[in-house]
Each structure stands twice: as C-alpha cells, then as structure tokens.
Design a protein around this nucleic acid. Sequence first.
RNA 1: GACCCGGUAGCUCAGCUGGAAGAGCAACUGACUUUUAAUCAGUAGGUCGUGGGUUCGAGCCCCACCCGGGUCACCA
Length: 514
Amino acid sequence: MSENETTDDLSQVLRHRREKLDSIIERGIQPFAYNFTPTSTTAATITSFEVMESAEALGENGHGERVTVGGRIVGWRDMGRSVFAHMEDGHGRVQLYFRKNVIGEESFESLSLLDVSDWIGAEGPTFRTRTGEVTIQVESWTLLTKSLRPLPFGKVETDPETGERKVYGGFQDQEMRYRQRYADLAVHPDVRDVFRTRSRVITELRRFLDDEGFLEVETPVLQPLYGGASAKPFVTHHHFLDQTMYLRIADELYLKRLIVGGLDRVYEISKDFRNEGLSKVHNPEFTMLEWYQAFSDYEDQMDLVERMVLHVLDTVMGERVIRVGDDVIPVTVPFRRLGLVSGLSEALGEDVHEMSEADLRAKAEELDVPDLDGAGRGKLIDKLFGELVEPGLVEPTFVIDHPKELSPLAKTHRNDPRLTERFEMYIGGAEIFNAFSELNDPIDQRERFEAQSTLRDAGDDEAQQIDDDYIRALEYGMPPTGGVGMGVDRLVMMLTGQTSIRDVILFPILRNEE
RNA sequence: GACCCGGUAGCUCAGCUGGAAGAGCAACUGACUUUUAAUCAGUAGGUCGUGGGUUCGAGCCCCACCCGGGUCACCA
C-alpha cells in the first residue's frame, strides 16, 4: 500500500489522508488550487438570508441569495444520499447541505474524498432547514486545499436557545497549543478573537498618538550598548565589524536623542528583549510602546495616559471596564494617585522618611521579604511597597514619586531631593505604564550612571552602563520632556481578560522541541 | 532556580494493591436524502515522555534525565 518508508511511518489517520490525496490526483482533481473567488462570506451569507427573510423577499422554495463561499470544513455529517457539513472562514461559520440528486452522482461520490479541515469552495442558494439553521444548498463545490493532517476539532454543541457553544474533546494541551499555534487558531475562534483585539488595540494606540501630533520612528534593535532599563540583555555578535552587539532592552535612550534633535514628539512600538525568566507576565521578547513629548512633565503624561486608556476602551472594547480573570473593574478618570512613600508610610503606620535604613531592613526581615542582600534604602522601600501595597492596586492607580536610587533616568523631584518625578500605573495588580519627567541635566545624568556603575561593580548585573554618547546628546540640550513606556502585551491581557502573557503572544518563547 | 502536578491511540481521558493496555470521539467498511455532540452495525489503530534499576512479572515501585502546566522566587 505505502509508497515508501516515510509513508509507513505515518499514523493510520495520516496515511488515509495520503491515500485520498492519491485518489484525488487519479481523478484529475487539483488538490491544491491556485485561486478562488468567493462572492460572499459565511457571516454575510447568513445576514443576507435573514434580511431577505424578514423583508419577505425570499424566492421560490424559500431560497435566499445564491452565494459562492470558500472556507475550511469543520464538521461533517454523512446521511447516505445527503451530507451536512459546517464551513468556517475568517468571518464565521455556515452549514452546507449536499444532496446527491442536486449535485449529481459523480460530484456526490467525490465527497468521500473530503475530510474535516479541507478547504473547499461551495456555490448555491441559501435556505433554512427544518431545524432552523440558515444553510447553503450546495449546487456545485470545488476542492481548494486537501488537508493531510486532521485538526483536533472537538464536537461542538450549540444550545438552540442561548446560542452557547459547548465543546467536547477538542484541543486542550497547552504546550501543543503554543507550539502549534496555527492549529490552536484554526480550532478556537475565541483565540482568533483575542489576536484580532490585540491588533485593533495597537491600531488605536497609533491613531491616538498620531492624532496628538506624535511621529512614529524606528530606532536600533541591535545596539553596541544597551540601556534605558534595568535588565539582563541578549548578547550577539556582528562578524564583519567583529563587535559585540546587544538586543535592545528599551528604546528610551535613542528616543530621547531624537528629542535633542528637535523631533519634539516621538513614539515607537517595538519588540524589546530581556534575558530573564518566564512567568505569566514575562516573555523574553515583548512589545513595548514608548513615547516622549517635549515641553511636558510627568503630570502632563498622567493626563495623556488617562486619555489614551479611555480612547482604547471606547474604540476597541466599547465599554469602560478592565477584566482581570473573572473580575470586572470599572475604569473612571481621574485615576487614583498614590505617593510611593506616603502609601508605604500609611501601610506601615509610620513615616518612612523618618525611618533609617536599618529600620526599613528590620521591617523587611520581619515580613520575610526575600532577596535583601545589598539592597539600599530605595530598594528596601520599593520591596516593602511591593509586598504591602502593590497587591491591592486593582483599580487603575498611578504610583508616584519613587526614590532616586531606583530611577537613574528620572529628574529629581522639584519639591523633594530624595525622590524623583516618576509614575508607574497599575491595573489589576500589574504594572502597565512607567514614566518620568526625563532627566535632562547631563552632569546629573553622568553622576547617576556612575552610581549605577558602582552597583554594577558590586555585582548587580542589571545595573545600567555608562552611555557617553547619550550624555553628549544631553550636553547639546534636551528640552523639558515627559516620557512613558507601556507594556503592550500586558494591556492586551487586561483588555481581553487573559491571565497569561502567552495567551496574547502568538508564538511565545518555548524550550526547543526534543 | 525551588516545590507540586502531569506526559498512555490522531484528540479528550480512565487504568485498582505490581499480574493479558482500555473508553468516548476521530479514522476505516457498510446502512441511512432536513442532520447538527446525527444515529446504527462492524474493523483497525499503542516506543504507556526517554534511559537505567528492582522483580518471576512494571503503565503502576526506585533513580536519573527530557518536556509542559501551576505556585513561589527572580524580573523597577
């Protein structure tokens, strides 16, 4: 039976499909068509029928419009001299009805060569079956692509009253769903919807910033020095230059060089790369949106973030709520603003500014906060805040005015030299935005870099490098600037109610197969 | 990185105290011209994640490893 060893190795199911392919070719049917021109989609076919029906415009035999549709077979019920099937395209699904005395003997016999997950085109008038489903009475059909590997469709039961879909069996294995995202998408319409939403969110973020007068720019992914965030980079090598290169961990320093150059409102949507662990909210490559606006400070940027979030909710979601798992969180402006130090003081019941580093450390140890080695005052405050306050930040909240040590690229707070003008915006306990009044004093910036360098020498491999070229740019003069970074993946998680970042990234990072 | 759970037919899973590898769906053959988790009859399909070990005998027990999920840690 089998032509060769390769075919021998295939499972029974795959072998049967190869055999059908052979039969198709023997009958002179093209199994992988070159093109097809539908006149309608599955969704439009149904809508059109319903419109004609309610206008009492149906033709003889209750037939609606004659359509030609293309799609993938997702269900098949063989009744002998008639067959019911379901077809899906990018817009929905529609039922097909094949009758032997309508399509003819030869065409009907050829149906036995079709399988679930094949792509076909079908042509005929619409009607409503006895059980009430709008269906295409197929008069002719054509094979578009023979599928040699069945998709793991489950059995779908649709409740006739509520329209709720219940899936039996199906494709559950998370690993396989991520590795074979094409199959996951093919089988799960709701997964396709998540990524459609993601795309629309990014479109609306662009539209919002474009309308605010921002210019979209592109800056290097491959960088001789990395900076703009505290993170471990991916390291690579350029052979011709014989030079070590890093994949960017942030866009920040390049975008601010553009502000120096007079491009006064810029943004970039980019993949950033951080060589760190994986979690429900961390993928090593992720999508970042950063923007910088001359003649603004972090207060202005808080207003802009509020307007941006509302714009995305209004245009994409149609409602001002965020979903975290099953929780529905209303989004209203202005968002809550909480000083990092004052919020922590409240949680501790004493003024953090009055506490010594030793006091802070004792508190942290008392609470079993891990990894305190080498933590300075700022780090201790941050850790305590993370432990005591952050988990409660479910409604949209700006956490503002971080300790200076934690923020080497932010301006010193105009009213308190111990703090910086910075905010992080949290929703549902996750950080989504991070912003500052950008530090534009080149002398101060060099000192901050040097402090980072000291941390680096002390073993902190996430501390930032000194970027002399960036300081040179600041010496030419950067106007007062507010800048914001946003985790696009995390925002999409919030909007689509996904609890894992992997469910909003089409191809999340996985270990190699085998 | 630590701990917990998992990996058995194409898919979803069961498999008792160690004693002849199972079910449903999918597939294949046949019946059925308005079904919709179609139905009915029959057939076939297995490297039990991998490699060792214990045992008369291992899907099951032991050791190591691989892969994934979850929790924690790391990650502003």
